[in-house]
């Protein structure tokens, strides 16, 4: 068996590190550990991991701070671990360049899925013009969206949103990131734009818009395109 991706686990709780090591090694990951921010930065520089799992609350510095320092020299994907759903630090972390987040407690299945997405995005994506999710197909080259084979008519804004989601399929996108990308930097606080346009997108693409399965809301954070 070839050696899998290298992952650096940063958490001050030894029990969390131990359980992650067991689960990750069982899934063919090579695991490094760090118990605080300073050690994390050293380990990251030393082992050049493919992905980093970073706890938000570290004894020596905030997880966001570790992330900022790491981002000065590395683009390694980072998945943040946050403690509470209402914890808004994770939005800062995502805006500061984290790839995704998970709220403790989380299931290993979920973690592995996020790790896969993060790793996939860190590879230069092959220019694949046609992308499929659920029963929706989007042809980026022809700017054509079909659902169950029928053409779906999208406004330019809706299309821009969908294209952005597709480009980051599986990854969470914060409100600010989406607004900045589609509307421009001066619109980053206008979250209600998103409520309206995502509502429209769901009406056009979801089987049951009241219970969306493709374009899901991450409460207080942003949106995610679910691909699997």
């Amino acid at each position: 068996m070839t050696e899998g991706p290298h992952v650096l686990v940063v958490d001050d709780e030894i029990q969390i590190r131990r359980f992650l090591r067991i689960s990750l090694e069982a899934n063919n990951y090579r695991v490094y550990e760090a118990e605080n921010g300073a050690a994390a930065l050293t380990q990251a520089a030393l082992h050049r991991p493919d992905v980093i799992i970073l706890d938000m609350n570290l004894p020596d510095m905030a997880g966001v701070e570790v992330l900022r320092r790491l981002r000065e020299w590395a683009t390694t994907p980072v998945i943040m671990l946050s403690v509470r759903a209402a914890d808004m630090d994770k939005v800062d972390a995502l805006d500061a360049g984290a790839d995704d987040y998970l709220t403790k407690p989380f299931s290993t299945v979920e973690l592995l899925a996020r790790l896969r997405v993060a790793l996939r995005h860190s590879q230069p994506a092959p220019t694949e013009p046609v992308f499929t999710f659920g029963d929706v197909q989007i042809d980026l080259a022809r700017r054509l969206v079909t659902r169950k084979g029928e053409v779906v008519r999208l406004t330019p804004t809706e299309y821009a949103l969908l294209r952005l989601l597709v480009q980051h399929a599986g990854k969470v996108l914060t409100h600010r990131q989406i607004l900045k990308e589609v509307w421009g930097p001066q619109y980053v606080d206008e979250t209600h734009y998103l409520r309206v346009y995502f509502g429209q997108l769901r009406q056009k693409l979801e089987e049951n818009p009241a219970m969306p399965r493709l374009i899901v809301t991450e409460p207080g954070v942003g949106y995610r395109l679910v691909t699997d």
């Binding site: 979250t191 409520r195 309206v196 509502g199 009241a210 219970m211 809301t217 409460p219 207080g220």
Partner: peptide, 17 residues
């Protein structure tokens, strides 16, 4: 409270999920 504009059906959808 971190009040922001919300679509209630969206909130309901998330809760149901």
């Amino acid at each position: 409270l971190k009040q922001e504009w919300c679509d209630i059906s969206d909130v309901i959808g998330v809760a149901l999920r």
